[in-house]
Amino acid sequence: MKNEELDQLFKEQLADKEISPPSFIWDKIEKELAPKHKINWIRYAAILAIIFSSALTIFFVKNTKTLSSPEKNMDDKISNLAMLDNKITKETTSAEAPLKKTEHLPENIIKNSDVSQDKTQNKVSSSAYKVKARETFSTRQTIHIEEPLVENNLKELTKNTGHQPLITYHMVEAGPIQSLISFPEQEDNMLASLATSEDEALPPLINKIIDKIRPTDRETPIKVSKDNEGSIQIDFKNIFAKNKNKNKRNK
Protein backbone atom coordinates (compact mmCIF):
# COMPACT_ATOMS: atom_id res chain seq x y z
CA MET A 1 0.00 0.00 0.00
CA LYS A 2 1.38 3.33 -1.03
CA ASN A 3 1.48 6.33 1.27
CA GLU A 4 -0.98 8.24 -0.91
CA GLU A 5 -3.48 5.39 -0.86
CA LEU A 6 -3.27 5.13 2.90
CA ASP A 7 -3.67 8.89 3.32
CA GLN A 8 -6.59 8.92 0.92
CA LEU A 9 -8.33 6.04 2.73
CA PHE A 10 -8.07 7.65 6.14
CA LYS A 11 -8.91 11.12 4.93
CA GLU A 12 -12.02 9.93 3.11
CA GLN A 13 -13.26 7.99 6.07
CA LEU A 14 -12.33 10.26 8.94
CA ALA A 15 -12.43 13.84 7.66
CA ASP A 16 -15.72 15.77 7.83
CA LYS A 17 -17.48 13.11 9.83
CA GLU A 18 -20.31 14.20 12.08
CA ILE A 19 -21.03 12.68 15.47
CA SER A 20 -23.73 14.13 17.69
CA PRO A 21 -22.35 15.14 21.05
CA PRO A 22 -24.48 14.47 24.13
CA SER A 23 -27.01 17.23 24.72
CA PHE A 24 -25.78 18.08 28.20
CA ILE A 25 -22.65 19.68 26.76
CA TRP A 26 -24.63 22.66 25.52
CA ASP A 27 -26.22 23.01 28.94
CA LYS A 28 -22.77 23.15 30.46
CA ILE A 29 -21.61 25.72 27.92
CA GLU A 30 -24.68 27.84 28.51
CA LYS A 31 -24.13 27.71 32.24
CA GLU A 32 -20.53 28.80 31.84
CA LEU A 33 -21.46 31.60 29.46
CA ALA A 34 -23.91 33.14 31.92
CA PRO A 35 -22.37 36.11 33.73
CA LYS A 36 -22.45 34.21 36.96
CA HIS A 37 -20.18 36.21 39.21
CA LYS A 38 -21.82 39.50 38.39
CA ILE A 39 -25.25 38.15 39.30
CA ASN A 40 -23.91 36.56 42.45
CA TRP A 41 -22.46 39.84 43.68
CA ILE A 42 -25.67 41.64 42.92
CA ARG A 43 -27.55 38.98 44.85
CA TYR A 44 -25.28 39.19 47.87
CA ALA A 45 -25.51 42.95 47.83
CA ALA A 46 -29.30 42.75 47.66
CA ILE A 47 -29.44 40.32 50.57
CA LEU A 48 -27.19 42.50 52.69
CA ALA A 49 -29.19 45.61 51.82
CA ILE A 50 -32.44 43.93 52.80
CA ILE A 51 -31.04 42.65 56.07
CA PHE A 52 -29.56 46.01 57.05
CA SER A 53 -32.60 48.03 56.09
CA SER A 54 -34.93 45.69 57.98
CA ALA A 55 -32.64 45.81 61.01
CA LEU A 56 -32.57 49.59 60.88
CA THR A 57 -36.34 49.92 60.59
CA ILE A 58 -36.88 47.53 63.47
CA PHE A 59 -34.37 49.45 65.56
CA PHE A 60 -36.02 52.78 64.86
CA VAL A 61 -39.55 51.52 65.30
CA LYS A 62 -38.67 50.11 68.69
CA ASN A 63 -36.83 53.23 69.78
CA THR A 64 -39.58 55.58 68.74
CA LYS A 65 -42.14 53.43 70.52
CA THR A 66 -40.33 53.56 73.83
CA LEU A 67 -39.06 57.14 73.62
CA SER A 68 -41.86 59.07 71.99
CA SER A 69 -44.89 57.66 73.75
CA PRO A 70 -44.67 59.74 76.97
CA GLU A 71 -43.88 62.85 74.98
CA LYS A 72 -46.93 62.30 72.86
CA ASN A 73 -49.11 61.95 75.92
CA MET A 74 -47.71 65.16 77.22
CA ASP A 75 -48.47 66.91 73.96
CA ASP A 76 -52.01 65.66 74.09
CA LYS A 77 -52.42 66.97 77.58
CA ILE A 78 -51.00 70.32 76.60
CA SER A 79 -53.28 70.70 73.62
CA ASN A 80 -56.26 69.71 75.73
CA LEU A 81 -55.31 72.32 78.24
CA ALA A 82 -54.88 74.94 75.56
CA MET A 83 -58.29 74.21 74.14
CA LEU A 84 -59.85 74.43 77.53
CA ASP A 85 -58.02 77.66 78.15
CA ASN A 86 -59.26 79.22 74.93
CA LYS A 87 -62.79 78.39 75.88
CA ILE A 88 -62.35 79.91 79.27
CA THR A 89 -61.03 83.09 77.71
CA LYS A 90 -64.02 83.33 75.38
CA GLU A 91 -66.44 82.79 78.18
CA THR A 92 -64.82 85.38 80.35
CA THR A 93 -64.77 88.07 77.65
CA SER A 94 -68.43 87.52 76.79
CA ALA A 95 -69.45 87.59 80.41
CA GLU A 96 -67.74 90.97 80.98
CA ALA A 97 -68.29 90.83 84.65
CA PRO A 98 -65.88 91.33 87.48
CA LEU A 99 -65.18 88.07 89.00
CA LYS A 100 -63.38 86.44 91.72
CA LYS A 101 -61.20 83.78 90.41
CA THR A 102 -59.09 81.50 92.38
CA GLU A 103 -56.47 79.52 90.78
CA HIS A 104 -54.40 76.86 92.37
CA LEU A 105 -51.87 76.93 89.64
CA PRO A 106 -48.20 76.50 90.27
CA GLU A 107 -46.54 79.78 90.97
CA ASN A 108 -44.33 79.87 87.95
CA ILE A 109 -47.29 79.44 85.64
CA ILE A 110 -49.19 82.27 87.20
CA LYS A 111 -46.21 84.56 87.00
CA ASN A 112 -45.75 83.95 83.33
CA SER A 113 -49.36 84.06 82.37
CA ASP A 114 -50.22 86.97 80.19
CA VAL A 115 -52.53 89.40 81.88
CA SER A 116 -54.11 91.36 79.10
CA GLN A 117 -57.02 93.60 80.10
CA ASP A 118 -57.88 93.46 83.69
CA LYS A 119 -56.44 92.09 86.80
CA THR A 120 -59.81 90.72 87.65
CA GLN A 121 -60.18 89.29 84.19
CA ASN A 122 -57.47 86.77 84.24
CA LYS A 123 -56.88 86.12 80.61
CA VAL A 124 -54.24 83.59 80.12
CA SER A 125 -52.59 83.72 76.77
CA SER A 126 -52.79 80.29 75.38
CA SER A 127 -49.48 80.41 73.60
CA ALA A 128 -47.52 81.58 76.58
CA TYR A 129 -49.30 79.09 78.73
CA LYS A 130 -48.51 76.30 76.34
CA VAL A 131 -44.84 77.16 76.19
CA LYS A 132 -44.66 77.34 79.92
CA ALA A 133 -46.51 74.09 80.30
CA ARG A 134 -44.08 72.40 77.95
CA GLU A 135 -41.19 73.64 80.02
CA THR A 136 -42.79 72.31 83.12
CA PHE A 137 -43.26 68.92 81.55
CA SER A 138 -39.77 68.73 80.30
CA THR A 139 -38.25 69.61 83.64
CA ARG A 140 -40.53 67.65 85.88
CA GLN A 141 -43.35 65.25 85.58
CA THR A 142 -46.56 67.15 86.14
CA ILE A 143 -49.86 65.43 86.27
CA HIS A 144 -53.03 67.39 85.77
CA ILE A 145 -56.11 66.12 87.34
CA GLU A 146 -58.95 67.92 85.64
CA GLU A 147 -62.37 68.22 86.98
CA PRO A 148 -64.74 65.92 85.19
CA LEU A 149 -67.37 67.64 83.11
CA VAL A 150 -65.60 70.96 83.39
CA GLU A 151 -67.04 72.18 80.11
CA ASN A 152 -70.60 71.35 81.03
CA ASN A 153 -70.21 72.93 84.40
CA LEU A 154 -68.80 76.07 82.86
CA LYS A 155 -71.67 76.41 80.41
CA GLU A 156 -74.27 75.87 83.04
CA LEU A 157 -72.64 78.30 85.39
CA THR A 158 -72.36 81.05 82.82
CA LYS A 159 -75.94 80.54 81.71
CA ASN A 160 -77.40 80.54 85.17
CA THR A 161 -75.39 83.24 86.85
CA GLY A 162 -73.67 85.18 84.10
CA HIS A 163 -70.62 85.09 86.26
CA GLN A 164 -67.19 83.86 85.54
CA PRO A 165 -67.12 80.31 86.71
CA LEU A 166 -64.74 79.10 89.23
CA ILE A 167 -62.11 76.93 87.69
CA THR A 168 -59.86 74.80 89.73
CA TYR A 169 -56.71 73.10 88.59
CA HIS A 170 -55.31 70.43 90.75
CA MET A 171 -51.69 69.85 90.02
CA VAL A 172 -49.56 67.20 91.53
CA GLU A 173 -45.86 67.53 91.18
CA ALA A 174 -43.58 64.57 91.00
CA GLY A 175 -39.86 64.44 90.94
CA PRO A 176 -37.88 63.29 87.90
CA ILE A 177 -38.20 59.58 87.21
CA GLN A 178 -35.33 57.55 88.51
CA SER A 179 -34.01 54.85 86.21
CA LEU A 180 -34.48 51.36 87.56
CA ILE A 181 -31.09 50.22 86.32
CA SER A 182 -28.03 51.82 87.75
CA PHE A 183 -25.73 50.80 84.87
CA PRO A 184 -27.12 51.81 81.46
CA GLU A 185 -24.84 49.38 79.58
CA GLN A 186 -26.50 46.49 81.39
CA GLU A 187 -29.87 47.75 80.31
CA ASP A 188 -29.18 46.85 76.67
CA ASN A 189 -28.43 43.25 77.53
CA MET A 190 -31.53 42.99 79.65
CA LEU A 191 -33.69 44.39 76.89
CA ALA A 192 -32.16 42.07 74.30
CA SER A 193 -33.01 39.04 76.35
CA LEU A 194 -36.66 40.04 76.43
CA ALA A 195 -37.50 38.31 73.18
CA THR A 196 -40.98 39.13 72.03
CA SER A 197 -42.99 37.11 69.57
CA GLU A 198 -42.22 39.73 66.93
CA ASP A 199 -38.51 39.05 67.32
CA GLU A 200 -38.92 35.29 67.12
CA ALA A 201 -40.67 35.54 63.79
CA LEU A 202 -37.93 37.66 62.24
CA PRO A 203 -35.15 35.13 61.38
CA PRO A 204 -37.48 32.70 59.54
CA LEU A 205 -38.89 35.63 57.59
CA ILE A 206 -35.46 36.78 56.49
CA ASN A 207 -34.52 33.18 55.64
CA LYS A 208 -37.56 32.94 53.41
CA ILE A 209 -36.63 36.15 51.62
CA ILE A 210 -33.10 34.86 51.06
CA ASP A 211 -34.42 31.56 49.72
CA LYS A 212 -36.59 33.44 47.27
CA ILE A 213 -33.70 35.55 46.07
CA ARG A 214 -31.22 32.72 45.57
CA PRO A 215 -33.20 29.50 45.23
CA THR A 216 -30.52 27.57 43.33
CA ASP A 217 -27.58 28.06 45.68
CA ARG A 218 -28.44 25.28 48.09
CA GLU A 219 -24.84 24.23 48.61
CA THR A 220 -23.86 27.69 49.85
CA PRO A 221 -26.69 28.63 52.18
CA ILE A 222 -27.06 31.98 53.88
CA LYS A 223 -29.06 31.57 57.05
CA VAL A 224 -30.13 34.06 59.65
CA SER A 225 -30.57 32.81 63.18
CA LYS A 226 -30.83 34.07 66.71
CA ASP A 227 -28.10 33.61 69.25
CA ASN A 228 -28.47 33.29 73.02
CA GLU A 229 -28.38 37.00 73.70
CA GLY A 230 -31.11 37.76 71.20
CA SER A 231 -28.93 39.28 68.50
CA ILE A 232 -29.50 38.22 64.91
CA GLN A 233 -26.55 36.46 63.32
CA ILE A 234 -25.95 35.70 59.65
CA ASP A 235 -24.33 32.38 58.75
CA PHE A 236 -22.92 32.16 55.26
CA LYS A 237 -20.92 28.99 55.05
CA ASN A 238 -19.02 27.99 51.91
CA ILE A 239 -20.08 31.16 50.20
CA PHE A 240 -16.81 31.38 48.33
CA ALA A 241 -16.10 27.65 48.31
CA LYS A 242 -17.63 27.17 44.87
CA ASN A 243 -14.88 29.04 43.09
CA LYS A 244 -12.25 27.38 45.19
CA ASN A 245 -13.43 23.93 44.17
CA LYS A 246 -13.56 24.94 40.55
CA ASN A 247 -9.98 26.13 40.60
CA LYS A 248 -8.89 22.89 42.18
CA ARG A 249 -10.68 20.85 39.55
CA ASN A 250 -9.08 22.79 36.74
CA LYS A 251 -5.67 22.10 38.13
Binding site: L14, D16, K17, E18, I19, S20, P21, P22, I25, W26, K28, I29, E32, L33
Partner: peptide, 27 residues
Protein backbone atom coordinates in the same frame (compact mmCIF):
# COMPACT_ATOMS: atom_id res chain seq x y z
CA UNK B 1 -20.87 20.72 17.19
CA UNK B 2 -21.26 17.41 15.34
CA UNK B 3 -18.29 17.97 13.09
CA UNK B 4 -16.20 19.27 15.95
CA UNK B 5 -17.15 16.40 18.19
CA UNK B 6 -15.91 13.97 15.56
CA UNK B 7 -12.61 15.85 15.55
CA UNK B 8 -12.46 15.81 19.36
CA UNK B 9 -12.92 12.06 19.37
CA UNK B 10 -9.98 11.60 17.00
CA UNK B 11 -7.64 13.58 19.21
CA UNK B 12 -8.63 12.36 22.63
CA UNK B 13 -8.25 9.16 24.59
CA UNK B 14 -11.83 8.77 25.75
CA UNK B 15 -15.29 10.02 25.00
CA UNK B 16 -15.34 11.82 28.33
CA UNK B 17 -12.26 13.74 27.34
CA UNK B 18 -13.75 14.50 23.92
CA UNK B 19 -16.78 16.02 25.63
CA UNK B 20 -14.57 18.19 27.81
CA UNK B 21 -12.58 19.37 24.81
CA UNK B 22 -15.77 20.21 22.90
CA UNK B 23 -17.18 22.15 25.82
CA UNK B 24 -14.04 24.14 26.52
CA UNK B 25 -13.41 24.66 22.81
CA UNK B 26 -16.85 26.14 22.20
CA UNK B 27 -16.55 28.31 25.26
Amino acid sequence: SKKMFAICIRYTESEQEAEDVLQIGFL
